[in-house]
Computed example of a mutant assay.
Amino acid sequence: MSVESVWREIHATWGLLTSDEVLRVLGLAQADSTRVSVMRADGVLLAVKPGDVYVYPGFQFESGQVKPVIADLVDLARDVSWAQDDLAIWLCSPSGYFRGERPVEHLDQPDELLKKARDAATVEW
């Protein structure tokens, strides 16, 4: 599967949200437009750049909040020098670590997800 097709699938399945859409999802004032950039810089949000601007995969939001495991995944990606784009693609692609399921389907199992993400990012052949 090509990278472009993965982005299309992520967009179709969960959405690739703009900063303004993230503000709405989180119930924050639109006037606080720098808030999303700060959250991205602080490692609270997973941000990808499949084009010219950052967008935010919709799978990381639930009930007006960022899922708690997201900051840990972003931190892990920084720790293992894994680009956030690569992390998002890994999360949304079928994985042998999850018997062919997509890791994103396991966001509510943070310990297992983080261990397998680290294993995937640091595997040596």
Rank of each mutant, 00 (worst) to 15 (best):
E112L: 00
D20F: 02
S95Q: 03
L23D: 01
T34F: 05
K116W: 03
V55I: 02
L107I: 09
E105R: 14
E21A: 03
V55W: 03
S81I: 08
V38C: 06
G58N: 10
G64D: 15
V80Q: 01
E124A: 15
Q60I: 04
D79W: 06
T13R: 00
L76E: 10
W125T: 09
P110W: 00
P50N: 04
Q65R: 14
V6E: 07
L113C: 07
R8Q: 07
L26F: 06
G100L: 11
L46E: 13
S33N: 12
A88V: 07
S2L: 06
K115Y: 08
T18W: 04
V74C: 01
T34G: 11
D79C: 04
I10C: 03
L107S: 15
S63I: 11
I89S: 09
A77R: 01
E124P: 07
Y97N: 12
R8I: 04
P57F: 06
C92A: 11
K116G: 10
R8H: 09
A77P: 08
D79M: 03
S95G: 08
W90C: 08
H11I: 14
D108Q: 13
R8S: 11
D75I: 00
V66T: 15
Q65E: 05
Q109W: 15
L91G: 05
A83Q: 02
S19K: 14
S95I: 07
F98M: 02
F98Y: 02
E101R: 05
Q84E: 06
Q60F: 07
L46D: 15
T13S: 05
Q109D: 15
R99H: 00
A41R: 15
S19N: 03
A47E: 01
F59N: 02
R40V: 11
A120V: 03
P103L: 10
G58K: 06
P110T: 12
L73M: 15
Y54Q: 14
G100H: 11
A29L: 12
S81V: 11
K115Q: 09
V44A: 10
R102S: 05
F98N: 01
R102Q: 05
D20T: 06
S5L: 04
W125P: 14
G43L: 02
L114K: 05
S33C: 13
A77G: 04
P103C: 13
E62H: 14
Q60L: 06
E9M: 04
G100I: 08
A12P: 00
S81C: 11
D108N: 14
L73C: 08
A77S: 03
L17H: 14
H106A: 09
A71V: 10
T34A: 14
M39Y: 09
W90H: 07
V104F: 10
W14Y: 05
A41I: 06
M1P: 12
S37R: 15
A83G: 05
V36T: 09
V36S: 04
